[in-house]
């Protein structure tokens, strides 16, 4: 059971703290600069009017972007001791995790939003198929959500933000690479690994088809990681 009025203040505080510090701006600017560079060079030098490069590049950038925005979410509160204060307020541990998750997710969406400009730029230039673009963005949000869930879990395990960053990066990198190393996988494992690979599900969504398999994957991955983070907070009670 969760109550929105309990989640809201946590969400709001976390989002404010992102935008009160330079971290959010630096991360967003770097994010947009990298994507902008590749998008424009594709457009002007190779003369390709397509969003494909964006959807190929963003999952890669997320590998760094997400750990950077999630590393402090719980680790910092553990270190400073404010987590003790927060967990003795009348809010559930799951609500704390959800509030923080939503804040990071909104930040991720805010970083992604300016790239919609590229879509509007391209529309008069070529015949853009809007379907895959829309599903592509949905896929990016889902993928980012799963990454954030993993990041919060990692952040709940340590007091050290750097450790949280590296752990998150390694785990999401693993999920990202999983379908790219299938040829090395032992026989019988390949199909399982493919199903676990996040990029496999993302690219299928980004092609314009949202399959229930993909939805089930993203929802269960996200749910699982958030539950792990909650359990990790509750570990003090064991």
């Amino acid at each position: 059971m969760i109550e929105l009025p309990n989640i809201y203040p946590i969400f709001r505080r976390e989002l404010r703290s992102y935008f009160n510090s330079p971290i959010a701006y630096v991360v967003i600017v770097v994010f947009l600069a990298i994507i902008g560079w590749f998008f424009t060079s594709n457009l002007f030098l190779i003369n390709v009017a397509s969003m494909r490069i964006v959807f190929e590049l963003v999952p890669l950038i997320f590998l760094f972007f997400v750990p950077a925005i999630t590393m402090g979410l719980l680790a910092e509160e553990k270190k400073s001791g404010t987590l003790e204060l927060l967990t003795t307020k009348p809010v559930r541990d799951l609500e704390i995790v959800l509030g923080k998750f939503l804040a990071a997710w909104v930040l991720l969406a805010a970083a992604l939003a300016p790239t919609l400009l590229y879509v509007f730029t391209l529309m008069p230039l070529g015949d853009i198929d809007l379907g895959p673009v829309i599903t592509g963005y949905i896929g990016l949000l889902m993928m980012g959500g799963v990454y954030i869930g993993i990041g919060i879990f990692a952040s709940s395990l340590t007091e050290n933000q750097i450790v949280a960053f590296i752990a998150t990066f390694l785990v999401v990198l693993g999920f990202y690479l999983m379908d790219k190393v299938l040829i090395y996988a032992p026989e019988g494992f390949a199909s399982t690994m493919e199903f676990l690979a996040i990029d496999y599900h993302f690219s299928s969504i980004a092609r314009g088809v949202i399959d229930s398999r993909n939805i089930i994957y993203f929802v269960s991955m996200l749910g699982f990681s958030l539950l792990l983070a909650t359990a990790s907070l509750e570990r003090r009670k064991w």
């Binding site: 809201y8 203040p9 709001r12 505080r13 404010r16 703290s17 009160n20 400073s80 307020k89 009348p90």
Partner: peptide, 19 residues
């Protein structure tokens, strides 16, 4: 323990909301 990056009023408001 306190959130050093928050201002006093915001922090008290945050506590009020949590309660």
């Amino acid at each position: 323990p306190l959130y050093l990056d928050m201002n006093v009023l915001d922090y008290i408001e945050y506590s009020a909301q949590l309660h």
